Simulated assay, not measured.
Amino acid sequence: MSPNLPPALAVLPSSPLRIAQSIADWMAETAVERDKAGKTPKAQRDVLRESELLALSVDTEFGGLGQSWAVTLEAVRILARADSSVAHVFGFHHLMLATLRLFGEREQWAPLFEATVREKWFWGNALNPLDTRTLSTPHEGWREFSGHKSFCSGALDSDMLIASARQENLDRLVIAAIPTSRSGITLHDDWNNMGQRQTDSGSATFERVRVDEREILVNPGPLGSTRATLRPLLAQAILTQIYLGIAEGAFETLRNYVHTESHRWSLSSADRQSNDPYALERGGEFFLALSGARALTEQAGAAFDRAWSSEDRLTDTERGETAIAIATAKVASARAGLDITTRMFDVLGARSTRADLGFDRFWRNLRTHTLHDPLDYKTRELGDWALNGQLPRPSFYA
């Protein structure tokens, strides 16, 4: 293993998920302090670079670890239990790699996969299809990207970007894979939200950035085939794992604190807080919600792997059923997490609100992230399926 790893991680296990757990345990030691400070989690991202987990979803023929999406997604959840910001940029790194595969040609993505493994590249996001302020102007053999882009998660400290621009005078999204250091790209350290404070989800400015035609992902392009429409489903699956990971991290924190620090209420007949009848009721409710969300999330991961392995044989119906499985897991995980991170304090008591404990970060991170696209609209899609048999229509959010 790399000598650049911190002493606590000098010897990492061979299993990818055990590596993720070791890194999560290490990150948990500083999670509260880093959440308060915000800014780029540079040390944590460098550990991921050295750990080889950035190659988790890359096929072995390109030097990667060749793991399934179910394993890659579980690694995201393991990291999210300790630090959902780092899990976010890690998950989006793999989403960017999948974007190359789904939107581009082999001649484009194969060498980029090899370089990602060889150079330990971290990919960042500058796509955000809802922000169309960046325009693409065609020239002979190249395009110019100019404008602004918001919610560029993981762009700071990245090596490569997936960036989008709107074709001038056309309702067309142009997506490219370009180096972050390309002349004309400015990444702004202006992310200052209440949660996910280390995702670097600030803005970017493109000033007459030259993008060669070979860097444009046009075959099949954005949502250009049934298989290409798996890209938004993977994004939703990653968010689901982050939501569930936050909820699991909050519940583990509750369980540890209630046995070590919590004081029973003076009117309670229990000998300690962990035996208080109301604490037991809340614990049972949280356990049930987590168990259901976990089962649905695992089913969704398996469904996505089946869809991915179908390649160009994937049908619209199979794609739609995969979308339903992921949406179901996403809503269940979000609701369970929001409930747990809000009501956990009923069990933990007044002392648990101390700022130095940082228990509020679970709710802040989850509340920030679950607004990525409204749960009401996701539930409405599920209702349309349940009542009318109508599968979700492919878009960048469905």
Rank of each mutant, 00 (worst) to 15 (best):
A8P: 06
L17I: 09
I23A: 02
I23G: 01
A24T: 00
M27R: 13
E29D: 11
A31N: 13
V32Q: 14
G38H: 02
T40W: 03
T40H: 08
S51W: 02
S51A: 13
V58H: 03
G63F: 03
L65T: 08
G66T: 08
Q67W: 02
L73S: 12
A75N: 03
A82D: 04
H94T: 02
L97S: 05
A98E: 02
T99Q: 11
T99K: 07
F103E: 04
E107N: 12
P111M: 00
F113K: 11
E114R: 11
E114G: 00
V117T: 06
K120A: 12
F122C: 15
N125Y: 13
P129L: 10
L130N: 15
L130C: 10
R133N: 09
P138Y: 07
E140I: 10
G154E: 02
G154H: 02
A155D: 01
S158H: 03
M160Y: 13
L161N: 12
A163I: 06
E168A: 14
E168C: 13
D171T: 12
R172F: 12
R172A: 14
V174M: 14
A177P: 03
T180C: 10
S181Y: 07
R182K: 14
I185A: 06
L187W: 02
N192C: 06
Q196P: 04
S201H: 04
T205P: 04
V211A: 00
V211R: 01
D212Y: 08
E213G: 04
R214C: 08
R214H: 12
G221Y: 04
P222A: 08
P222T: 04
L223N: 09
S225G: 07
R227N: 00
L230I: 05
R231A: 12
Q236N: 15
A237H: 08
I238Y: 04
T240Y: 01
E248S: 08
V258H: 01
H259N: 13
H259C: 08
L267R: 12
L267D: 08
Q273R: 15
Y278P: 01
R282G: 00
G284Q: 11
L288C: 10
L288F: 14
A289N: 09
A289C: 07
L290Y: 05
A293W: 10
E298H: 14
A300R: 05
A302W: 06
A303E: 02
A303C: 03
F304Y: 15
R306D: 14
S310H: 01
T317V: 15
E321D: 14
E321A: 11
V331H: 05
A336M: 03
A336L: 03
A350H: 13
A350E: 14
T353Y: 05
T353K: 11
A355E: 07
L357T: 07
W363Q: 13
T368S: 11
P374H: 04
R380Q: 13
L382Y: 06
G383C: 06
D384H: 09
W385P: 01
N388I: 05
F396D: 15
Y397P: 01
